[in-house]
Amino acid sequence: MSGLILNRRRLIGLGAASAGSLVLAGCDQFDFLGQRNDPVRDFLERANSLTYAAQRALVGQQALAREFSESEIRQGQRPNGSTDPRQNVAEYRTLEANGFAGYKLRITGLVETPKEYSLAELQNMPSRTQITRHDCVEGWSCIAKWTGVPLGRLLDEAKVKPGAKFIVYHCYDVMGGGLSKPEPYYESSDLIDAYHPQTIAAYGLNGGALPVENGAPIRIRIERALGYKQPKYVHTIEVADGFSQYGLGQGGYWEDHGYDWYGGI
């Protein structure tokens, strides 16, 4: 009888002591979670696949992101991340100096007829304009008007082959540099997001041409995802059956740096 009581007391005391030490030790204790490829972190990251699956299951493939009225455009689109590839990318500098006259948007990979479009050709195609909210992974939001060609149309013209699973967006801007290896920005999406009616290859912002700081000449808008899934300075759209061969293999520049691939929350 008394042994039982002691055991319980001891158990309670043990629980209280370990809970207390957890708090007192401070949160440096969990800094190891910041190491990419830490097994505990890898385990926690599995929740991201659950989130992706849950959002795909709960939200219709065609469900549209909220579109706002003109009066809700209250400011310019806030530039963030890489805002000027002219600084370190010579090819982009030359293109920009010539008003992107020499720019080509390439559709390549698992397509029957690879395509190339000049900026003027893209601007002469049927367009879509939408006033949407841009949600940065940092937490802020900004409402702006985007004009561009529906990506689904470009993919249809190139005729996507069976077996295609992802679209990889290759960009001019190069991240890193200095002491770290330069890494060209890239992103990827599944076909659902690529063919979504609001997914456009945007060349216009708030009624004008897309400025350099916001991704000129072409930025992909995937309106149901966070800002890092809206690649700027896109030059090649590659249809692929996987993305492990690009960058560090996680499907995007920020994904290679620990961010979740879907970016839907």
């Binding site: 401070g26 949160c27 969990f30 979670l33 929740a47 929350i265």
Partner: peptide, 24 residues
């Protein structure tokens, strides 16, 4: 301050991994 965050240094990506795991 760093004592109130996981990880203690600036790491938004890891913060998100931890946050969404425990949200589930």
């Amino acid at each position: 301050p760093g004592w109130a965050t996981i990880p203690s240094f600036r790491d938004l990506a890891t913060g998100r991994v931890v946050h969404f795991f425990f949200a589930w």
